[in-house]
């Protein structure tokens, strides 16, 4: 356990060291810019050309009241999160793959080859997408499905429901950490979907504590912000509807750093485990 903790701090230390290579930031900057673009388009949903996309979506999938001010801001955070989820499947997985490749180049003391990283990531898009889909479905089932199921069984009070939801989140993180090394396996070691799934499970079973913590800590760093964003009514009445936008903007910044830490430490640990073996 103590060795595990020491190892985790070492991994994070390695991430901080890798910040010296600017190219490792590029995928995260790109993703933050995409998220920022989505956020800006979202808060301008009523104006052309965004109205053409968002108004039909809001009318179809949300309450029509969301087209009114300030009610719209009640739906901004969930809408942003859902768009983010879709984006993570379209662009996110490519950028994570790029980041993994760039981190690996840094950790192996190889020259930074951005073009190679990009090319490899696009080449592996199919496999990455399938793995992402499996992981996302399983995670969503745990995070959303489990608390819903428990709610139906136990009819808990508000406090107990919060505990269920938090437990669901921790289990969701567990699922994510089971899949933690798939991207590295596919991108760095050219593994097939099946191989990447079986090997990531093997690494997890051997280093479960480290794997869980390096996935969980950056993920949980976002938890206080999610908690605040759930108090939409309070934020709107006490401050202003635009406060939600500010918080989501802060969330993008937070995601930038936590993702860097998460992908960096996963890649470093993957290299440590696999290259030691070789």
């Amino acid at each position: 356990m103590f060795d595990g903790v020491k190892r985790i701090f070492w991994l994070w230390g390695q991430c901080f060291k890798s910040m010296g290579r600017v190219s490792t930031f590029v995928p995260f900057v790109l993703y933050a810019l995409v998220q920022l673009g989505v956020l800006i388009s979202l808060i301008n949903f009523i104006n052309p050309p965004f109205a053409n996309i968002y108004i039909p979506i809001i009318k179809k999938f949300f309450n029509a009241a969301a087209l009114h001010y300030p009610t719209f801001y009640v739906f901004v955070a969930p809408l942003f999160n859902q768009i983010n989820l879709v984006l993570s499947g379209i662009i996110g997985i490519v950028l994570i793959a790029m980041a993994t490749k760039l981190f690996a180049q840094k950790f192996r003391d190889e020259a930074g080859a951005f073009g190679e990283a990009t090319g490899t990531s696009f080449k592996k898009y199919g496999s990455l997408f399938v793995v992402w889909l499996i992981e996302t479905v399983l995670t969503l089932v745990i995070i959303i499905g489990l608390p819903t199921l428990l709610k139906k069984i136990f009819d808990p009070d508000y406090r107990m429901m919060q505990i269920f939801e938090f437990a669901g989140l921790l289990l969701g993180i567990l699922v994510a950490s089971l899949f933690a090394y798939t991207t590295a396996l596919i991108v760095l070691d050219n593994q097939s979907i099946g191989e990447s799934l079986s090997k990531t499970l093997k690494i997890f079973s051997r280093y479960s504590f480290t794997s869980y913590v390096i996935v969980a800590v950056p993920t949980l760093a976002y938890f206080p912000l999610s908690f605040i964003l759930r108090k939409v009514d309070f934020l709107i009445t006490k401050f202003s509807p635009e406060m939600i936008t500010t918080l989501l903007g802060f969330g993008i910044l937070l995601t930038f750093f936590t993702s860097y830490l998460q992908i960096g430490s996963i890649t470093r640990f993957y290299l440590l485990v696999t290259e030691r073996k070789r």
Partner: peptide, 11 residues
Amino acid sequence: QNYQKEQAMYN
């Protein structure tokens, strides 16, 4: 599509 009505209301 013409969303002028929604835009005017929202603004």
